[in-house]
Write a protein that binds this DNA or RNA. Sequence first.
RNA 1: GGCGCGAUAGCAAAGUGGUUAUGCACCGGAUUGCAAAUCCGGGUAGGUCGGUUCGACUCCGGCUCGCGCCUCCA
Length: 457
Amino acid sequence: MLSFYNSLTRRKESFIPINPGYVGLYVCGMTVYDYCHLGHARVLVVFDMLVRWLRASGFRVTYVRNITDIDDKIIKRAQESGEPYTALTQRFIDAMHEDGGRLGVLPPEHEPRATEYVGEMLDMISRLIANGHAYAADNGDVYYAVRSFPTYGRLSGKSLDELNAGERVEVDPYKRDPLDFVLWKAAKPGEPAWPSPWGPGRPGWHIECSAMGSRLLGEHFDIHGGGQDLQFPHHENEIAQSEGAHRCTFVNYWLHNGFVRIDNEKMSKSLGNFFTIREVLERYDAEVVRFFILRAHYRSPLNYSDAHLDDARGALTRLYTALRDMPLNAPEMDWDAPYAARFKAAMDDDLNTPEAVAVLFDLAAEINRTHDAALAGQLRALGGILGLLERDAGTFLQFGPVESAGYAPERIDALIAERIAAKKSRDFARADAIRSELKTAGILLEDSPQGTTWRRA
RNA sequence: GGCGCGAUAGCAAAGUGGUUAUGCACCGGAUUGCAAAUCCGGGUAGGUCGGUUCGACUCCGGCUCGCGCCUCCA
């Protein structure tokens, strides 16, 4: 039985979809004013893994991951670079797709952009005003009145009185309550703006997810995900908006992934301690990065360092080594097979990928013992569900950084041939010299009864 | 200050009220011309103080430390 830790109830719950066999999933995506960093990579990979597991479990899934393509930071960046904000956002949307693709992240069914749903947002704001949850202020802004929503704070476990509003933020004099948040923001001269009943302006951040989620998945859907930092206030506000407008439950299961850390501290834009995905991919294979993310539980903090990525690479190498000279195709999955059953139990238990990955290693050990092609097929199939182990083993094992490109594959093959000749004439000194020369270049030679192969160190 | 999460071996990371997690590193053996890979075996755990229990790393409480949210953030 599939179960998830639901942030709303703070416990593990069996997953029961609203419609049998079908899952509606919404994940908060990126605000596109810069390149994605590893924290974004974690969201992309973790929820891609969830979608893959739901499908492997037989569900049909509609996966929606939005793009915030209008907000204060975007406007500021576009002003700085002197380009239309739409050019800026398109550039970073393209970069995000490229980064995600390299990490093996499958495209969602829908990738709605905020600017394409302003009409839906305006409808929703009107409805909130009509329902007594929102008010237009004299400055042209429209605010949500948090005190009008009795269960405000339930998701994040906060009560309005505990929130100590105004302690750290300047209180907007137009707000009736310091915790009220903006639904519609009046435009200043020169800013991008859409017409509205309250004057030209742009949507507040939170309303877009409520509007796009209900438009694409319905007013009540199964799963909503995102990074832990969105739990408050973003997701709290989404609930207040959606339930305030639609008068029905918004989402049944809330899933939040943990942070990526550096030196035990949250990686974030504001702290400036982030690595972009593309920076990391210059030095590490994308599958290693994906494996690094999935070998930790999605709710745990994940410390980033070169040492940890090196470690992940070594571990993944062991799995691929077991697949060397094995067929590439993965057979039909038999969930009653012992390893598959353990894998499934782990995944069903709140997506316990560390345990699922441990099953892959046990399987690899048995493959190494038995050289059983059927087991190798099973390893391929289970790995594939995580978006791993889908490449030819040789391709993975021979992947390396460009600096060792001084040795092209042809040159390596020639040296291997020379070494085999030397070994034949019992010239072990020459043979060892060749091997040690290549080792210096980061290339390991391995002799076996079938001949000599090489891989990157 | 309020609310919440965590503390597992050299490093990383899971499950589990009593029996091997797993990976990397390390030690011994097999194999190899020598290696590498692989196989067999091995040591090193559960912050701290109490409680519950026949038995606790696992449940409960105190303490200490770390992290996060309370402001834009995945």
